[in-house]
Amino acid sequence: MLAALFLLAALPAAVSAAPPAHNYDCSDTTPTAYDAQVDQAAMGYSSSSSMNAHASTACSTFRSDAIFFFNGHGLYYDESHKGGGIKFSSESWILADTGGHYPGNDQYYITDYGTDIRDVLLAVYLACYSSHDNQYNGDLLQQTMNKGADICIGFDGEVEVENGKCWSGNFWDRVRNGETVASAASNAKDDCYWHWPIGYWGVDTYEISGNYNSYLTPARYGIY
């Protein structure tokens, strides 16, 4: 009897212990965040998705995340000044670093995290030039890794909505079906190639930092 009561008491704790995953569609990219949420839930993550979130929300929830997925605009000021930032609603941005350029109305910086995001297993920034090192706003992948994330993915080229959706849908489906992060990223790009119009259209520029041969199952936090 006592054991049964103990089990009942422990159940909510066990359920809530599923590592959280947050997914954001911040352009005309729906339903990629929701699709990612479904795949992550099937892998055992406590996942959620939202459209047009403010950067402050994403910045705050990032602290508790095992998985963070963003699909939206990346920072592009000019050819010599691109990358290092992702754009949320109301002209709010998450930027890698403070470095003399302040896009939009509100800026939040990865460098401002202490050890807050060291539990992150995987961060995916699906945006134009999201893995490009910007002399003013820094390098999103490098800063995220510096703060303790295990794996981070970005793109070093121009990516557009439709092929971004294609890559995302296939990437999450493939990791759910047991592929490593590196295999899923690569195979997802080939999944997009033969969809019309034929071509990679930038999804071949993906870059991975960290433990690229990891699986996302079993559901877990990153190692710190």
């Binding site: 605009h73 990346g74 920072l75 592009y76 000021y77 000019d78 691109k82 930032g85 754009k87 002209e91 941005w93 896009p103 939009g104 134009c128 121009e158 557009e160 909505v161 439709e162 092929n163 119009p197 071509g199 259209w201």
Partner: peptide, 18 residues
């Protein structure tokens, strides 16, 4: 016709597309 069109950025976002 498969076209890529790039425009001057606005609000720090690249304009145009496929």
């Amino acid at each position: 016709w498969v076209i890529t069109m790039k425009g001057e950025p606005e609000g720090d976002v690249l304009q145009g597309g496929l």
